[in-house]
Amino acid sequence: MTLAFAVVPSNGRPVLDECLAAIGDQVDTVILIGNNWQRDRGVGSSGAFVSNDYDDGDQNISRWWNRGLAKAERLARFRGASEWDVAVINDDAILPADWVETLSSRMRSTTAVLAYPDQCGGHEEILHTRAEPVPLSQRITGYAFMLRGESGLRADEDFVWWAGDDALDWTARQQGGALLVPGIPVEHRAPDVQTNASPVLTAQTCRDMDTFVSKWGARPW
């Protein structure tokens, strides 16, 4: 059986407990990346063991993802796994039942190394294999996606707050594909709330998009 991990960066928002409760029975281990914040091991979770990691540096969501991905790899290899799934989840994303299993089975039935849910009510499974803009309705859901762990994919830490999910998506397309999966939408409780509340983060989104265009030659949508 394929091992399953979840990487959840959080600064301790109250909705985190609901996030962990929704994913706790779907994975073997939750890797909680506390950014400038800590909590007791396992509090608010159900099912999975919660492994805490902390990052007290500057806000860089790509770095948080990478810390979690690296830890998932260490744990998987320690357990002798040759393949494993890593769900990368915002702390305000509430997953439906069987989300991890469904996304994993669909991803692993194709060449895809990344998969994400269709949030726009579509019915077609789409495997993207070209690094090019797609309709906004098919864009990666940066708050909830899955990686084929053994692929070794990592986020580009030049993207501090925004567009890092798109860069990871486009990289995945070049390494086997990124799969859009219908029928398992995620409840996203607080989209852009942290960004809009912070002038620093709002300004960073512009810089990150400029970085994306500089590196990839186009906007992602």
Results as ranks from 00 to 15, higher is better:
1 M>Q: 12
1 M>Y: 14
2 T>R: 09
7 V>T: 08
9 P>S: 01
13 R>M: 12
14 P>E: 14
15 V>Y: 00
17 D>T: 09
18 E>D: 02
18 E>W: 10
23 I>C: 04
26 Q>R: 04
27 V>I: 06
27 V>P: 04
28 D>A: 14
28 D>W: 05
29 T>Y: 09
29 T>P: 04
31 I>C: 11
32 L>V: 11
33 I>V: 11
34 G>M: 10
35 N>G: 03
38 Q>P: 00
39 R>N: 05
41 R>C: 08
42 G>M: 06
44 G>A: 11
44 G>S: 10
45 S>L: 04
47 G>D: 03
48 A>F: 11
49 F>Y: 10
51 S>L: 06
53 D>M: 11
53 D>H: 13
54 Y>E: 14
56 D>A: 12
60 N>F: 08
61 I>L: 11
62 S>V: 08
70 A>L: 15
75 L>D: 09
76 A>H: 11
79 R>M: 08
81 A>W: 14
81 A>V: 10
89 I>R: 00
92 D>G: 01
94 I>N: 05
95 L>Y: 06
96 P>I: 14
98 D>Q: 05
101 E>P: 07
105 S>N: 11
105 S>W: 02
107 M>C: 09
109 S>A: 13
111 T>V: 07
113 V>D: 11
114 L>E: 00
114 L>D: 01
119 Q>F: 07
123 H>W: 06
128 H>D: 13
128 H>P: 00
131 A>S: 11
133 P>F: 00
134 V>Q: 03
135 P>I: 09
138 Q>M: 13
138 Q>P: 02
139 R>N: 01
141 T>H: 07
142 G>C: 03
149 G>W: 15
150 E>Q: 15
151 S>M: 15
155 A>P: 06
157 E>W: 07
158 D>V: 14
158 D>F: 15
160 V>W: 15
164 G>C: 09
165 D>P: 13
165 D>C: 09
169 D>S: 13
172 A>W: 13
172 A>D: 06
173 R>V: 05
174 Q>G: 03
176 G>I: 12
176 G>W: 12
177 G>D: 13
179 L>V: 05
180 L>M: 08
180 L>V: 07
182 P>G: 04
186 V>W: 01
186 V>Y: 02
186 V>T: 10
188 H>S: 04
197 A>D: 12
198 S>R: 05
202 T>H: 03
204 Q>P: 01
207 R>V: 07
209 M>T: 07
212 F>M: 04
213 V>W: 00
218 A>M: 10
219 R>I: 06
220 P>T: 01
220 P>K: 05
